[in-house]
Design a protein around this nucleic acid. Structure first.
Length: 171
DNA sequence: GTCACGATTTGT
DNA sequence: CAAATCGTGACG
């Protein structure tokens, strides 16, 4: 039961806190809704896998903007990845949404199912049309693993998964 | 301007 | 395991 959009303050926190906090929250766009089940944190500093590791460029501009905005980019020329900008303004941390309930697993499948593409890059998630709604905190443990599909900074435990059995308990 | 590459997915 | 497919960043 979503109860309003997440506030700017929710996003203006350390990236890992935002990542963990996003699990169980509800992504909404164009009439479609689904709880966030899997995320990855991309840190503002000392994270070679993050786009922000190469500094401020035209593409990473939104990462340096205010928190609570969408950072969308195209991978492999065909799949869009949806990220949420975290940390205070000018600190380029973000959280990749890898799985949403009802859209299956995979960042590319999720954006396709929700109709998210490059046009949403820079959108304010607190205003819509693309937004994230608050929801009761999920009960139980969160699985933590290295991130998927990256080579640099493989050692960092920055992938967070809400186990499906815990999700069912919340329904 | 040119070029190699990628936070993926799908099919062989 | 390999192809599909194109925006981005590095270089000149």
């Amino acid at each position: 039961m979503p109860s309003g959009v997440l506030s700017r303050e929710f996003y203006a926190r350390p990236t890992v806190e935002v990542a963990r906090g996003l699990l169980g929250k509800v992504l909404e766009h164009d009439g479609r809704r689904g709880r966030i089940l899997e995320v990855e944190a991309y840190l503002p500093h000392a994270d070679l896998a993050a786009h922000a590791a190469r500094g401020l460029t035209p593409r990473t501009r939104v990462l340096y903007g205010p928190p609570g905005h969408a950072y969308v980019f195209l991978v492999y020329g065909m799949h869009h990845c949806l990220n949420v900008v975290a940390e205070p303004e000018a600190t380029p941390g973000c959280v990749l949404i890898r799985a949403v309930e009802g859209a299956g697993d995979g960042p590319g499948k999720l954006t396709r199912a929700f109709g998210v593409d490059l046009r949403h890059n820079g959108c304010d998630l607190t205003r819509g049309p693309l937004k994230i709604l608050d929801a009761p905190a999920p009960i139980g443990a969160i699985e933590v693993t290295p991130r998927i599909g990256i080579t640099a900074s493989r050692d960092l435990p920055l992938r967070f998964v809400l186990l499906t059995e815990n999700v069912r308990k919340c329904q």
